[in-house]
Simulated scan of single mutants.
Amino acid sequence: MKTYSLIATVAAGIESLVANELKEHGYKTETENGRVRFEGNARDIAFTNLWLRTADRIKISYGEFTAKSFETLFDQTYALPWEDILPLDAEFPVSGKSVKSTLFSVPNCQRIVKKAISKRLMDYYHRRQHLPETGALYPIEVSILKDHVILSLDTTGSSLFKRGYRMDKGGAPLKENMAAALVKLTTWRPDRPLYDPTCGSGTILIEAALIGHNIAPGLNREFSAEQWTMLNPDVWPIVRQEAREAIDHDIELDIYGTDIDHRMIEIAKANAKKAGVGDSIHFKQMQLKDFTTEKEFGILISNPPYGDRLLDEEEAHEIYRQMGDIYRAMPTWSKYILTSDETFEQHYGARATKKRKLYNGALKVDYYQYWGIRKKRND
């Protein structure tokens, strides 16, 4: 199979998580802002779309060059072997972005790239008139940063965070890949208790259960590249079947989620069932202040409502105070709390062991980490 230069796009702040995922699967990586580069063939494209939990998309970097004029952009685009990947009937819309570049007009850049690819295909397929574009979708992007052009094809389609299990989101939902990132940024392992006191539609706990049972997050959805005839579509059912065989339902998970809103609990249960982990998570309607546990060395993850998300500031601060009062009495537990409120520590009543800046969509947030007492290991 032909090897391609691939890019896993990722939200700012969690590039290292995507790089680590790829390395765990045996890929060599190069990390840049907002993306992780690696190489792979058609099978690798299928595999990474199915298995990466924290990435946004998998793209083929089909050409990279410097361009300061539309003529150069056209010529360099035309010079690429588009016929090797685009069939005669390919539908290939061109999106674009340009930052700090001589060619700053994105619509013009898109038009030039579209024109160059069209001419290349028309010349190759001996077409005098327009191309039909009635076949499979091949989304192309022209991205220009400081005059460096990357022409890429999006193999994913809808972003990887769209796993397909969320029947209802509820208010202020957390993207599935960000929820997976929150889990991966903790010290949780499948043999430890995991609790979310503000579970909402259950996304964080569902992602943890998928990790615990080794379920590929993209197993139950479709991807753009599955329809690409030039990219060996036969690999997709093979990779899917291998992913099904890798699932381990014998692992017993201790995952518990509560929310004050009984409607969100019902939504969470339905989402977990759709994801195939309904029997692995215990959901219960409960006020945050009523939580008690005799379990030790667990992990708590919370994405509580904050001032610009569902509650006003006074209500949010009261929740933080309750958290501080309750969780200080759980010294062996490690707590991880996501919020955009920069005064969180003040109301919680303790400084975090560590604080990590992330982005929940366009919203800048902090992930406050309070590490519990470590469990002593037997010699």
Rank of each mutant, 00 (worst) to 15 (best):
N49P: 10
C109H: 04
P305V: 05
I299T: 03
A11Y: 01
I373T: 14
E245D: 12
Y370P: 02
D154P: 00
E245Q: 06
A79W: 14
I265S: 08
F92H: 02
Y368V: 01
W236E: 14
N214Q: 09
M330Y: 05
L73S: 02
R192T: 01
G34E: 02
V113E: 00
G324M: 09
D379C: 14
P87N: 10
P237N: 04
T29C: 11
T29D: 12
G200V: 02
T186F: 12
I281Q: 10
N360P: 02
Y348I: 07
N41A: 13
L50N: 04
L121S: 09
S118H: 11
A216Q: 05
K115A: 11
L153G: 00
L50Y: 02
D234W: 02
H213C: 10
S340F: 15
L103I: 08
W333K: 10
V113H: 04
T292S: 09
K115S: 11
M286I: 02
A136T: 11
G307Q: 14
Y336R: 14
Q227A: 13
T66A: 15
Q129L: 12
P331T: 06
I140S: 08
V149T: 08
Y348E: 14
F291A: 04
Y370Q: 01
A246K: 13
L205D: 02
A216N: 06
A19Q: 03
I58D: 11
E176R: 04
R263E: 14
F223D: 03
F161N: 07
G200N: 05
I150H: 13
K284E: 15
D84W: 06
S69K: 04
E294S: 08
F291E: 02
V94D: 04
G257N: 07
D279C: 12
Y256A: 03
G276C: 04
I144S: 13
G34I: 06
L363R: 15
L219G: 12
A181D: 05
V99W: 06
P173Q: 15
H317W: 07
R221H: 07
N20W: 00
R377I: 09
